[in-house]
């Protein structure tokens, strides 16, 4: 499965669900597809997209919250899977783009998932039950609807090709971090948990 195709599929299902992404090329691709609206916060520091979404999800139990991370980012934050399992925020969906590499620096910069670490098994081992690995767009299409609507917490591990060239549609850098964060927080205040 090609990462930009998966990103497009996710963007189609996402609607306006507040989403925080880790860094990496997927951020640029999601930006290319969704633009700089205020419902996606791009480029969170590496291990923190998921914990930030976890706090947000607990504070907003009626609102779906999505964290989008690379395998490298999640490997840096494995402990948070234990915290998610422990507190079980049903409205949290974690999507891991597992390309078995730190592909921002080239496909040959492999991560531990290339040598056998199974992030879905880790999530299950922590006690998270709704964990699905998808390897094709058809599988992703089937699971994305439920994973963004039905009670979780969900962990979707999307196995994608390790592609290190950015999407050609990407034309500009994402906006200033402070400005973007304030936009995101204002959007959250306005949406008021719905």
């Amino acid at each position: 499965m090609k990462r930009p195709d998966f990103i497009e599929l996710f963007a189609r299902h996402r609607g306006d669900i507040p989403t925080i992404t880790g860094p990496g090329l997927m951020t640029r691709e999601l930006f290319a597809v969704t633009g700089d609206g205020d419902t996606v916060l791009y480029n969170m520091e590496m291990p923190y997209a998921t914990p930030m979404c976890m706090g947000l999800a607990m504070a907003r139990p009626q609102q779906r919250i999505v964290a989008l991370e690379g395998d490298g980012s999640l490997i840096m934050a494995l402990g948070v899977l234990t915290t998610i399992a422990r507190y079980h925020p049903e409205n949290l969906t974690l999507i891991v783009l597992d390309n078995e590499s730190y592909s921002t620096f080239g496909a040959d910069m492999v991560s531990a998932t290339a040598t056998g670490v199974d992030l879905a098994a880790v999530a299950r081992g922590c006690g998270i039950e709704k964990v699905v690995t998808v390897t094709t767009l058809d599988q992703a299409e089937q699971v994305m609807g439920p994973a963004l609507k039905e009670p979780g917490p969900w962990v979707i591990v999307a196995k994608v090709d390790s592609q290190s060239e950015p999407d050609p549609r990407f034309v500009r850098n994402s906006p200033d971090v402070t400005e973007q964060s304030l936009d995101f927080s204002r959007m959250l205040r306005r949406s008021n948990g719905q």
Partner: peptide, 8 residues
Amino acid sequence: IAVGAGWG
């Protein structure tokens, strides 16, 4: 997590 809850 605390920062996320603050945003919420």
